[in-house]
Simulated assay, not measured.
Amino acid sequence: MTLDVAQAQYAGGGPGHALVRLLGRARAGAPATAPPTLLAADGGRWVRLAAVPGTPVVRGDGAAFGVDFEVPLHLAVGDGQWFLEPGATVGPDPRVASLAARIAALGDEIAALRARVDAGEAAASVPPLAPVPDPEGDAALAAEPDAPSARATPVPRAARLRALRPGLPAVLMAAGALAVGDAVATVVWQEPVSALWASHEQAALNGDLDKLDATYATPQAADAAGANAETVTSPAQRMRALAARLEGTTRAGKPLGKLTIKRIHATYVMVQGTRASSLAKGPGHYSGTALPGQPGTTGIAGHRTTYGAPFRHIDALRRGDAITVTMPYGRFVYRVEGLKIVKPSDAAVLQSATTTTPRLVLTACHPLYSAAQRIVAVARLVSATPRGAAAPGTTA
């Protein structure tokens, strides 16, 4: 064992987990290692928990260390065993020199054996190679793959962790209240890796949308949609025709327009489709629902905690709030009529009350950190301004 654990204490927590801090000291003479992992018994299996991101290496030569782990609540308050496993060696390791010497000796024996075979000596006269002892390697091979390794250190449980058991419902209720509260001015959180990815995708989509706007600003776009000024004089009819063309030519994950919600400070390029690959880029248009400018309901979905979290604060929308959707052929302003919570299987919110009522419906998972329900914002169209090839006076 290279690490001695002196204390385990409860250091905080969050939705569904407790933050456990392990304090101890490295054995004298031990090499520096990467952050250790926590091996916990979970029923009939072992699970390995990595240290929280940013944990520094554990220095050797008897240095003290402190490592934090996010432990699922059912493990934190349970009775299973915990073990601390040192990470990979960082920097010079004295065992490397010993291993190198053994490899060199084995190479010399192989070279001598090859010389004797080449000289025509009988195989019987060749003594067998003596096994090279490796106590640590043999012990590691003998250990069960999913069980604590021979170097693992048992972790003492703190009394404070067991004290969590009676208050577990209160902890869960507090986590849920934090998750679903209107937290515009409080703690704002989103998954950082997916947020970085979404930011990169949005930057690329902005460039693609500029090109799309330029294409739909030409008379040729109106001609291709069968809505040139000579045959269709109404801007509303031209927007409808251009919307139908855009719907029919845009593949999943490609940009359609820009969504702006001032109340929650959200401006995103929206894409076609609501599959995971599309929503990883930004808000996605439900295929099969209308596009702005067409009669019926326009449905748009978005994430609340991952991939930029465009609809994280959708629950802050209020009646009368403006939502603007800018398409290559028009700018459409909607006013929120209300919010509702529905089951994930409830598709009625995406169906129009009539075949001609233009509405906008935004949907997202609810509550935060859960997909148990859907939160729906319903808005009605209050103005439509043609642009690009739909604007009056655009002729070939």
Rank of each mutant, 00 (worst) to 15 (best):
A174L: 02
G330T: 03
G80H: 10
P219L: 03
V180Y: 15
P36E: 00
V382N: 08
Q351W: 08
A227W: 00
I375C: 07
E109D: 14
P86T: 03
E247G: 11
L39Y: 02
A88C: 07
D213V: 14
P386M: 06
E109A: 15
G330Y: 01
A364N: 12
P295A: 06
R165F: 06
L350D: 03
R331P: 05
D68N: 12
A8M: 08
G91V: 04
A348I: 03
G284Q: 01
S383M: 04
K343Y: 12
T297G: 10
G62L: 00
A290F: 02
A142L: 06
R157F: 08
A63W: 03
L256H: 00
L350C: 04
L49S: 04
A105R: 10
G62F: 00
I264Y: 04
D61A: 13
V378C: 01
Y286V: 13
L22D: 01
A347S: 15
V20P: 00
Q220D: 15
D213W: 14
G54D: 08
P292E: 02
P235S: 03
T306I: 14
V71C: 08
A130K: 09
H313I: 08
D213G: 11
A112S: 11
A119K: 04
G282A: 07
G13A: 01
A236W: 12
Y369D: 12
G78N: 02
T274C: 09
H366L: 07
G29D: 00
P367E: 13
A244K: 09
W189D: 14
C365T: 10
A309P: 09
H74S: 10
R304K: 10
N228L: 10
A101G: 14
A76L: 06
G288T: 01
V336M: 08
G176N: 12
T306W: 11
G12D: 10
E337D: 14
G308T: 06
Y268W: 15
T267M: 08
V269A: 07
V269Q: 04
A11K: 06
A225R: 03
D108Q: 11
G43L: 10
R162M: 11
